[in-house]
């Protein structure tokens, strides 16, 4: 794959379609966009102590130091495979899924799509998102974050082979992060 404008356009269209399916609550169609070996992780972020040995370097301020990822001693917010995501999709369509009854009104905005590189049929992409989440009349919440994806070329489209969701919160100030990002 060449990292050219055509590919960039194709990736953007893929993300717009994905956002539309999620906002239209067509989660079963969304699930079909994920590869069955997907690794889906949402690190949590904490306020890390500065390492003064790094002062003057960019590593001193790197957000990576604030991430709780899926290593053995960390505690991410979510770390899921295809099975767990399929359980979440299945749940949403049950009458007893009270957290989604009535369902939230959501609107996802994807921007800052940047192709970082490709290896074989896999493409590394980062993008930003804003998600407006509205429930129960006036309960409105705004989510902001970054997605770090590996997209795999499959047929004429892509599948999400891995996704890391970086939320811009230390203390979560929304009712749930159990949404599809």
């Amino acid at each position: 794959m060449d990292l050219n404008r055509d590919l960039h356009f194709e990736v953007e269209q893929f993300y717009y379609r994905e956002a539309r399916l999620l906002d239209d609550r067509e989660y079963q169609q969304w699930l079909a966009l994920l590869s069955e070996d997907i690794c889906y992780v949402m690190p949590s972020r904490y306020v890390a102590q500065r390492d003064h040995a790094l002062r003057g370097t960019e590593a001193y301020l790197s957000p990576e130091r604030e991430m709780q990822t899926e290593t053995a001693s960390d505690l991410p917010l979510r770390e899921e495979n295809y099975f767990v995501l399929a359980v979440r999709v299945d749940r949403a369509f049950k009458p007893t899924a009270w957290g989604d009854n009535p369902p939230a009104r959501t609107r996802r905005h994807v921007s800052n799509v940047e192709l970082l590189g490709c290896e074989g049929d896999e493409l590394k992409v980062v993008s930003n998102f804003m998600l407006n989440y509205s429930r129960h009349g006036q309960d409105n919440f705004l989510y902001s974050g970054q997605r770090r994806d590996c997209l795999r070329r499959e047929g004429g489209s892509f599948k999400v082979a891995s996704r890391e969701i970086i939320l811009d919160w230390n203390v979560i100030t929304a009712p749930t992060v159990a949404l599809f990002f």
Binding site: L75, R91, A97, G99, I172, T176, V177, A178
Partner: peptide, 16 residues
């Protein structure tokens, strides 16, 4: 993490 915490499958109904 699958069940509890802000992203948990179960706890999303509790917090609601």
């Amino acid at each position: 993490t699958h069940m509890f915490g802000p992203g948990g499958l179960l706890e999303q109904e509790d917090s609601e």
